[in-house]
Design a protein around this nucleic acid. Structure first.
Length: 492
RNA sequence: AGCGGUAUCGUCUAGUGGUUAGGACGGGAGAUUCUCAUUCUCCAAACAGGGGUUCAAUUCCCCUUACCGCCGCCA
């Protein structure tokens, strides 16, 4: 069996989308599983929508996800260049070949004429297919049109190719994930393979590139199924080996529409910015259409590759459920070693002065605040009370907790007792336990007692382990905040 | 409109010609805890509808319905 070579061919008209990331992943997995090569090709045929920024984003995102390519624009390879715009001199030769063999013809129709054809089709409630008006133009007619200054586009002659290589008008192929697929090619219009400005169209460039790059399997989204028939015919007309195709279901938003910005992040880099881990993202996206044979959903890309069989991918669309991604993200965050996590959280703590904390204190802070993190960015709002002398009290905490008589009494007692405590973890832990016990005997629930202390010192009623907080803040600041929360009249 | 595709809990999915149709997220209840969270236990929740084939259909076939995609000198 010849070498397995697969590719991901994003078009740099935006940042790398999660859908593209998933397609890239499945290609990567297929290559890994079959000891093949994973190739990156940039399809920037449309210069107007392309930018270097997007190209960089695609590179960075793919790398961050761990989807490293064997051949590509940056690393090169035996079949380069791997950027379509650098391959423009390759295509005309094949266009000419098709022209010579009669599988393609020049089309002088103007945009207006084409528009009219389309309108008529719409009016008659017919599917639009090109009229083939220019199929049999004589040399004289062409010369005349050319003299008028018209530049021809080149169209592929579907019927001719179909007849040359198949018995009927039905074209069939065996899809890697969907099984046998077929289509009546007489319903397809003769499509443009070279624009009047000389640039190749997508459907043509893809075929040439895939053939020249010896791509053995084309794995992509099912929105390409109808292109496949056109592409197969070009492969055949040019005498190339036709690769195997596999079409993946699409990823939809929770409302079943196309996943777009209004649903949340869609580009890999947006997810990263919001505090998602690439490990979680790639793991989650693998589960859209694929299920592990051992039932354990948490898996690295390598583990997935070992267990991967393309024929077992679900062929239906799947909905991108942010909730499950979040769960998975929190799961991965829990597994990060503390030293690494300390570094990863720093970008989300820029509004605080980290210099206020020693490394030891910072470590402690991360240890006691990491548990509830779903996104790395959640850390931002979880830690304001570790910084500064004073603390901002939430209004509802002020009125609902601190202003109560019980809280005031607890705080007076707390300040009184705590000033004699040794500010160590063990002592704080045991003293606080005793403190709660004393108030419990007076009929105050432990949590109410702690609410008072917590509210005074952190400004909120929920948060990290109280012993840890006190330890990090130190005796002076802790008592300062506690005293400050006591109202004048309560102070004895 | 036409052509293609898809159909198991709300979501991602496992599964089989005979199963109490399994798991995960989410939801609900409870336990643990100084709070939130974590963790643990338990619960609810699905084979789209109609015809066949068959002793038997969620599973195979057909139709309907719903949803998705494609019909560009975009990619």
């Amino acid at each position: 069996m010849s070498e397995v070579r697969v590719r991901i061919a994003p078009s740099p008209s935006g940042n790398l989308h999660v859908g593209t990331a998933r397609t890239a992943l499945f290609n990567y997995l297929f290559a890994k599983k079959n000891n093949g090569k994973f190739i990156l090709r940039i399809e920037d045929t449309d210069a107007e929508r392309t930018s270097q920024e997007y190209i960089d984003n695609i590179f960075d995102s793919l790398k961050a996800l761990g989807l490293n390519w064997d051949e590509g624009p940056d690393v090169g390879g035996p079949y380069g260049p791997y950027t379509q715009s650098e391959r423009f001199d390759i295509y005309p030769k094949y266009v000419q070949k098709l022209l010579d063999s009669g599988f393609a013809y020049e089309c002088f129709c103007t945009p207006e004429e084409l528009e009219q054809e389309k309108e008529e089709a719409t009016k008659a409630k017919r599917a639009y297919v090109y009229s083939k008006k220019c199929e049999n133009l004589s040399e004289e007619e062409k010369a005349k049109l050319r003299a008028e200054g018209r530049k021809p586009a080149i169209r592929f002659n579907i019927a001719k190719a179909q007849k040359a290589f198949h018995d009927t008008s039905i074209l069939e192929f065996d899809d890697l994930v969907k099984g046998k697929l077929h289509m009546d090619t007489s319903l397809l219009g003769d499509f443009v393979i070279q624009k009047s400005n000389g640039a190749p169209t997508y459907n043509f460039a893809v075929v040439i590139d895939d053939a020249l790059m010896k791509i053995s399997h084309v794995i992509r989204g099912e929105d390409h199924i109808s292109n496949t028939y056109k592409q197969i015919l070009i492969f055949e007309a040019l005498g190339f080996d036709v690769p195997r195709f596999g079409h993946l279901g699409m990823i939809l938003a929770p409302d079943r529409s196309k996943l777009s910005k209004r649903h949340g992040a869609t580009a890999v880099s947006d997810f990263v910015k919001e505090g998602y881990l690439t490990e979680a993202l790639i793991n989650f996206v693998a589960l859209l259409g694929w299920a592990p044979s051992d039932g354990n959903e948490i898996k690295t890309v390598d583990e997935i590759a070992a267990d991967f069989r393309i024929g077992e991918i679900s062929s239906s669309n799947s909905i991108f459920e942010y909730d499950k991604l979040k769960w998975m993200n929190s799961h991965y965050i829990k597994q990060i070693p503390i030293d690494k996590l300390k570094e990863m959280l720093k970008p989300y703590l820029t509004k605080y002065n980290l210099n206020e904390l020693t490394d030891e204190q910072y470590t402690k802070m991360v240890e006691i605040t990491r548990e509830p993190l779903t996104l790395l960015s959640d850390i931002t709002d979880a830690v304001p009370y570790f910084f500064g002398k004073d603390v901002e009290i939430e209004p509802e905490t002020q009125t609902g907790t601190l202003d109560t008589e019980t809280a005031q009494n607890v705080l007076v007692d707390f300040v009184e007792k705590a000033k004699d405590w040794n500010w160590t973890e063990e002592e704080l832990h045991s003293k606080l336990e005793i403190f709660r016990g004393e108030w419990k005997e007076k009929g105050i629930k432990p949590k109410v007692t702690m609410w008072a202390v917590r509210a005074a010192i952190t400004g909120r009623t929920r948060g990290a382990d109280m012993v840890g907080i006190l330890e990090i803040l130190g005796k002076e600041t802790s008592l300062y905040r506690a005293k400050k929360a006591i109202k004048q009249e309560s102070k004895v």
